[in-house]
Amino acid sequence: MEKNAPWPPGTFLARLQPSTRVRLLSVGVRRSVKEAQVILREGAEESYVILLEDALVKVTAALTDGRHALLSIRVSGDIIGEISALNETPRTATVTACRPSVIRVIHRNEFMAFLRDNPDAALTVAGIIADRLRWANRRRIDFTHYPLRVRLARVLWEIAAAYGRRSPQGMVVDIRLTQDEMATLCGAAQVSLQKALSELRSEGIVSTHYRGIVVRDSEALRSVADLA
């Protein structure tokens, strides 16, 4: 992705001033990664930040029962691993590429120097961390107030709105997510998730395939999600 490319709204690169963005894209080492390659591994003690230049990744964490919870999805323009790098603590999650991607590896010392020299970028990092905390709090509220069908619809809508592409079939989300990962994201048992997802499929609202999800009726999905 070129340095002057339009970055997805809300991502780290999109929030930076153009001159600051150019400086950041000159820091670190650019690398290519393959689909399904692990970029960061939970528990690892590492001191670098990853900038996603042209990438789609999923963030997961291991549960005590052996399953893996899907925590979030990150796209081109996002940064990952910043908390562990800045605090010098072990990684709290595993990050896996969902497609062939280009990333930039920035050592902690380089990133700290960049933030010192660019205070606007430091404020942007703080804002992104705050946004992620708000998202986590909203998810906990959803778990408390809404049944699984509504929680699932909300998760599918958020993913489609943020990462989907339009096609004649609807909003296509080319992200390979297991039902186990979807279940943990919705706070449900896998068997319950399967039933709720089957209902949405039978109603023609969504369809699923090996490599992703298609939202066929976005208005119906918003209605099920109880979104104004």
Rank of each mutant, 00 (worst) to 15 (best):
P8G: 06
P9T: 02
G10I: 04
T11D: 07
L13W: 04
L13S: 05
A14I: 03
L16P: 09
Q17E: 15
R21E: 00
V22L: 14
R23M: 12
R23D: 11
L24S: 10
L24R: 05
L25C: 08
S26R: 14
V27R: 15
V27E: 14
G28R: 03
R30T: 14
R31Q: 14
S32R: 15
S32C: 01
V33P: 00
V33R: 13
Q37D: 08
Q37Y: 05
I39S: 02
L40A: 05
E42C: 08
E45S: 13
E46R: 12
S47H: 13
S47Q: 13
V49A: 09
I50A: 10
I50W: 02
L51D: 04
L51Q: 08
L52V: 06
L52H: 02
E53V: 12
L56S: 08
V57L: 02
T60V: 15
A61V: 15
A62V: 05
A62R: 15
L63W: 02
R67L: 11
R67I: 01
R67A: 13
A69D: 00
A69M: 07
L70Q: 00
L71F: 07
I73H: 07
R74I: 04
R74C: 08
G77M: 06
G77Q: 03
I79S: 01
I80G: 01
I83R: 06
S84Y: 00
S84L: 02
L86R: 04
N87K: 13
E88A: 15
T89Q: 12
P90Y: 09
R91Y: 02
R91N: 13
T92Y: 06
T92P: 05
A93R: 00
T94G: 00
V95H: 03
T96D: 02
A97H: 05
C98A: 06
R99M: 10
P100W: 00
P100N: 11
P100F: 02
S101W: 00
R104W: 01
R104Q: 14
H107N: 10
R108M: 09
R108S: 13
E110H: 15
L115H: 04
R116E: 15
R116F: 12
L123V: 10
L123S: 12
V125P: 09
I128D: 05
I129D: 05
D131V: 04
R132Y: 12
R132H: 14
L133S: 10
N137S: 11
R140T: 08
D142C: 06
F143P: 03
L152F: 01
A153D: 03
V155D: 04
E158A: 14
E158G: 11
A160E: 03
A160C: 10
Y163T: 06
R166L: 12
Q169N: 09
Q169T: 07
M171N: 07
V172F: 06
V172C: 06
V173T: 05
D174G: 10
I175H: 03
R176N: 07
R176D: 03
Q179A: 00
Q179W: 10
E181T: 12
T184R: 13
L185D: 04
C186M: 10
G187Q: 09
A188D: 09
A188H: 04
A188K: 06
A189I: 01
Q190R: 15
V191P: 04
L193A: 07
L193W: 07
Q194E: 09
K195E: 12
A196W: 05
L197Q: 13
L200F: 05
R201D: 12
S207D: 11
S207I: 06
Y210Q: 12
Y210E: 13
R211V: 04
R211L: 01
V215G: 00
E219W: 08
S223I: 02
S223C: 03
A225Y: 11
